[in-house]
Design a protein around this nucleic acid. Structure first.
Lengths: 264, 264
DNA sequence: GTCAGTTTGTTCTCACGTTCACAAACTCCT
DNA sequence: AGGAGTTTGTGAACGTGAGAACAAACTGAC
């Protein structure tokens, strides 16, 4: 809802090219980002939001959510940029890909902008998610409350280990991996999370794809190959630390390098 | 076999753009100003490796490690690229920033290249790491074996909750947060992991910086501000899912948007 | 030694992402 | 109403990254 009633006219006036959203590329198959045919017609087939912008939209969403909880109903691009940890010019450009949802001289209506971003990302309703691999990490993911509050609902936990099939984690029973197909079909699951050891990741991914899952979040430290049309994002904890270590090493040149005497 | 020359000569020959300013760290662009002020540039501190390359080096390292375990002693850029899930031209260009460690017509010696990358990243010896916030996620991180095997050693677990101070997690006692300064000083800890709720993240980061930590890996879903010279990387589980949801929504236009009556 | 085959390292070009700077548009005050 | 003050949205400049293509360098055969 809009806190300031007088803005009603302004907000509806901002709905510019809302009807041009449809226009998904005629090839019904997989994801076709090849709209960049070098030159003409890059924006006619629906707005192509740059990948870097897509990655930041959830951050803005989170910041707007925090503002709402503090009772802030309007904010400027500068305020939101600070809350999101980015440059205000970048923020405005990012938001401009979605449309003109702000008011010049005033700023953005927090709740209205929050809804528009959520709609653009597609988290206005919950996505069913399954987690495969209920070890330490899978356990933590199943209990993570942030999923539920941000548009995702864990509908099933799976593990190949029969010893786990008795347990209940985060209120859900751990089910055998063989039930994957049935669960995905019944609940229309499109997103799967892999939290298995590295050795199992590829075969789990294959099974997921076979069952109909088209988006995978991979926590296993291994590269997985998937067919066209399936998206994979990876989160590797030790890689993040290694990137930090690289910069850390450069900060403190006093740490002398051992010149590898014993390595084969 | 080490067909190429040893480190010293090759490295000095690769001094190209020593004065380029990078500073595109995701959250805070903290970079050591020593490169501009201190013109001496002792030995290996001269090449500016692009941030995108730095982020991929750990992936190559992991692939090389897997090859070693399978007994592969030599590989071409194409083989390594496939194992790492990247383009072979990109791989060669990335490796060229480190030096010329391959042999034309032959390829790369797996173990030699592995060591060179590890040395460049700075994980030839272990980095002491502390974890703050021993909830579900902190628990999983403490038990994660990948840290130890990839150049990191968790030396302490901290939590503000006194109820946890009795417990032992992953062989380490959970210590009160007040001991942060002493632990960081005693163990020379430079890297800290935040696994607390979002509300506590900023104050924990402040305390970490005050204690002398200069690299932070933040799992809490909030933006944290740090002074110049401190690096922050963030891992947000729900953001990754939201990025997947965006692409998933574009794949299946059949999912009609509920027009959220709240906008009335 | 020479030639064919192979693979690296590098250059060049293009696309993408970031930042600046400013016009457009809105509010508020007089 | 008009002007001063704000803030958005966007065009343009700039820097970084990705990928193709190719010369350089090495191996092995004869």
């Amino acid at each position: 809802m809009h806190p300031s009633a007088r803005d009603g006219g302004t907000l509806s006036a901002c709905l510019k090219d809302e009807s041009s959203v449809n226009a998904t590329t005629p090839s019904a198959g997989g994801r076709t980002p090849a709209a960049t045919v070098d030159g003409v017609v890059t924006r006619s087939a629906g707005r192509e939001i740059p990948e870097a912008t897509v990655a930041r939209l959830p951050v803005y969403l989170r910041a707007l959510h925090a503002m709402l909880e503090r009772g802030i109903s309007t904010c400027s691009s500068e305020e939101l940029a600070v809350a999101a940890g980015v440059n205000s010019a970048k923020l405005r450009k990012d938001l401009s890909y979605l449309g003109s949802y702000g008011t010049r001289g005033v700023g953005y209506d927090v709740d209205y902008l929050r809804y528009q971003i959520a709609r653009e990302i597609g988290v206005t309703q919950d996505w069913p998610v399954i987690i495969v691999g209920i070890g330490n990490l899978g356990h933590a993911l199943a209990n993570y409350s942030g999923f539920r509050s941000r548009g995702f609902r864990v509908v099933a936990l799976l593990d190949a280990d029969p010893a786990l099939s008795e347990k209940v984690v985060a209120g859900l029973p751990v089910r055998p991996f063989a039930e994957l197909d049935a669960i995905v079909a019944e609940q229309s699951v499109a997103i799967g999370v892999i939290a298995t050891p590295a050795e199992a990741a590829q075969s789990v991914a294959d099974e997921m794809v076979g069952a109909g899952i088209t988006s995978i979040l991979n926590f296993a430290p291994s590269v997985i190959a998937v067919p066209e049309g399936v998206d994979v994002r990876k989160v590797d904890l030790s890689i993040e630390l290694q990137i930090l270590a690289y910069h850390e090493q450069r900060k403190t040149p006093s740490v002398s390098e051992p010149e590898q005497g014993a390595s084969a």
